[in-house]
Amino acid sequence: MDSEFSQSSLDVAESLHANRVIVFALATLAELRESDTESHILRVQHYVRVLANKLGPHPSYAALLTPDYIESLCRSVPMYDMGSVGIPDRILLKPGRLTPEEVAIMRTHTTLGYESIVRAEKTLGRASPLLTIAKEITRSHQEKWDGSGYPQGLSEGQIPVSARIVALADVYDALISNKVYKDGVPHDKAVQIIFSERGTHFDPDIVDAFIEIHEEFAAIAQRYADTDADMQQKIEYMANAIAEVAVL
């Protein structure tokens, strides 16, 4: 009996691990389409963890940000940008300024990601409580504290806490990361930019928590920095994508 129980527990653990590997692999493919890498996902995951842990004791967040919730949030992070797979390369990889029409298409990545999860749940027969956070962050990570974000124009407490946390982590990484067509800004400059958007783009409490632990963000960025091989991969992917668009 004990051996059967142990084997059953092992099978469940292996199944959970396999599911996480598949989610991470699919998320990596989505990031590749944006000429990004799995390192970006790892960085955002770790930013979210340290930020959520810092916010945990705060009276406004203590009831929600339990260890189990934080773990579920971190496991969901790889899915937050999955909707980008539905955006054409000509828009997703365009190095110049997007037209208003292109901006409108780009913004649909939030609803595309959210709706893909909802459709999958319906197809398979029921909604999963375990995917609640994933749906929150895919749809709402581009919302802003002052209501000027998208897709729903939510403001302040209307925005799920999970999405508020991911929003700051995502923007920080976008600021400090080198792209094929532009260099990232130094850590200190990224901190200044985020602080300047306290109460407009970002939840003030979350910005305050970030300011207290910003050096941990810098350490994570260094630990999971893109390598020369990563940058070469970005360059080659963008070159191939541009060539395909030119042929069309």
Rank of each mutant, 00 (worst) to 15 (best):
E31M: 03
H187M: 09
S148F: 02
D183C: 14
R33F: 14
A163Q: 05
T132I: 09
R223Y: 08
L98D: 09
S15Q: 05
A246R: 15
E102K: 04
R90V: 07
V50N: 04
L29Y: 13
V180K: 06
G83E: 01
A221I: 04
A18T: 08
V166C: 01
V44D: 02
A169E: 00
R90T: 13
E143F: 01
A25L: 05
I194W: 00
R20L: 13
N19L: 12
L168P: 12
G149A: 07
R126S: 15
G149W: 10
T111A: 11
G149C: 09
Y69P: 01
D36G: 11
R33Y: 12
Q158T: 07
P67H: 00
D188P: 04
I137K: 03
D81P: 09
E115K: 07
I91K: 01
L51S: 05
D146W: 01
H58D: 12
D146N: 10
L10M: 10
D208F: 03
D226E: 14
D183S: 15
S76Y: 04
A13H: 02
S84A: 13
E216K: 07
E34H: 13
L124A: 01
Y172V: 04
A229M: 12
D226I: 09
D36K: 14
Q142S: 15
A134H: 00
E4D: 13
K179C: 12
P186D: 09
F195V: 08
N53V: 11
K189A: 12
V247N: 07
S60F: 11
V50I: 03
D173Q: 06
N178R: 08
P67A: 00
N178A: 07
D188K: 08
G149D: 10
E101M: 12
D146Q: 03
V85R: 03
A63L: 06
V21Q: 02
E197Y: 15
E71W: 04
H201D: 10
V48W: 01
V85E: 03
S155I: 05
D205A: 04
S76A: 11
D205W: 01
A225R: 09
A13W: 02
F24L: 14
P95K: 02
D183G: 14
R126G: 11
Y172W: 01
Q142T: 11
I70A: 00
A27F: 07
E244K: 14
V247S: 12
E101S: 14
A209H: 00
E71K: 04
F5I: 10
Y61L: 00
G149L: 07
S196H: 12
Q158D: 03
R223G: 01
T110I: 03
K54P: 10
G184L: 09
T111P: 11
M1Q: 09
D11I: 06
R119I: 08
R49K: 07
A127L: 12
S177W: 07
E244G: 11
I105Q: 11
Q152S: 15
V103Y: 08
Q45I: 07
E31N: 06
I235G: 10
R198H: 14
P204W: 10
L175F: 13
S8G: 05
E197D: 12
R126D: 12
L32Y: 09
A190I: 05
I235P: 10
D89W: 14
G157N: 14
P129N: 12
I41W: 05
V118S: 00
P129R: 06
Y114R: 06
H109P: 06
P100N: 06
S35Y: 10
E101R: 11
D208P: 01
I117M: 05
S140K: 02
M231L: 15
I194Q: 00
